[in-house]
Design a protein around this nucleic acid. Structure first.
Lengths: 155, 155
DNA sequence: TGCAAAATCATCCAAAAGGATGACGACATC
DNA sequence: GATGTCGTCATCCTTTTGGATGATTTTGCA
């Protein structure tokens, strides 16, 4: 991958150099600038396409998908209950309430639904969400959920 | 495919025209030809790469092999790679593309980020999302992610 | 080669979510 | 009593998401 960029820079520099050199030999021709433009455009277009082909060559993927029958546990591991990472929570300064709301977010509830369920206003939910997102470094609720799961804050 | 060639020609023509036009205004600057060359080169290189990436998108051979696995834990098992529940996916009529976008949603990406990453427009992402949500019976992306995980479609 | 499914893109509109900021009361702690 | 944290709520504004719908293109397959 890095090699390609190198080649790219090389070819670019070479072309520029060639351009500068040939300028003094053929610039006398009328409209040669346009011709230059077209030439360079063609060259780099083909090169770009080639590069695109190169770096995406590994598209021929054979995907073997194994289908498993959902016999017993669907997602829920029997016997092992979720244990929240309280240390991480504290180090991030996430309050219990914020985590509670975060877990409801993770369940796919909207702010309004969460507000109804917790008997608070939607604004309050939004505030908690904002603070939690901020502490997690998330910009969206989906991202917050993902981070929360990665950090062991959510099941 | 034909449209791409058209766009190519159009951009090319436009660039040449612009070149010709600007020539009479800035050609007085020393070494502007080189600058022109570099500019045109850059433009067409990016365009070429884009085109290359576009036309070589997605070419995978999917081999669905039905293997019955003693379904024990569908949750996060350390060391074992995630095996998507293709049966469930098919029964819900969720396409590969939709699932692909769904997995990016689950990673916490916004529609715009997904669009950028997959080289498609934001509208397309939204369409895929809508269809996937519809098939999953989800009203929100967070809910879709949760359902997707419960159904074994997402890791 | 022609059809059907899938993918792509667009527009319009409504709802949800997010950011910034201020405020107020309850409670614990110093 | 002053201070600080937490939970609560609000307003204003912007961005993101979602829904509905239609069109075009690409692709896989019979």
């Amino acid at each position: 991958m890095k090699r390609h960029v190198l080649i790219f820079g090389l070819v670019g520099g070479l072309l520029i150099a060639t351009l500068q050199y040939t300028e003094y030999r053929f610039i006398v021709i009328e409209h040669s600038v346009e011709i230059y433009g077209a030439l360079v455009a063609m060259l780099f277009a083909t090169f770009g396409i080639w590069l695109g082909l190169r770096i995406t060559r590994r598209r021929e993927t054979i995907v073997v998908r194994e289908v498993l029958v959902p016999a017993s546990g669907l997602g829920a591991e029997p016997g092992s209950a979720f244990i929240p990472n309280t240390a991480k929570q504290q180090s991030l300064g996430i309050t219990a309430r914020e985590l509670e709301i975060l877990s409801l977010v993770a369940r796919g509830l909207s702010n309004r639904e969460i507000a109804t369920q917790l008997f608070v206003s939607e604004n309050t939910v939004k505030t908690h969400c904002s603070r939690a997102f901020d502490k997690l470094g998330a910009a969206r609720r989906t991202q917050a959920v993902q981070l929360g799961k990665e950090l062991g804050l959510l099941p």
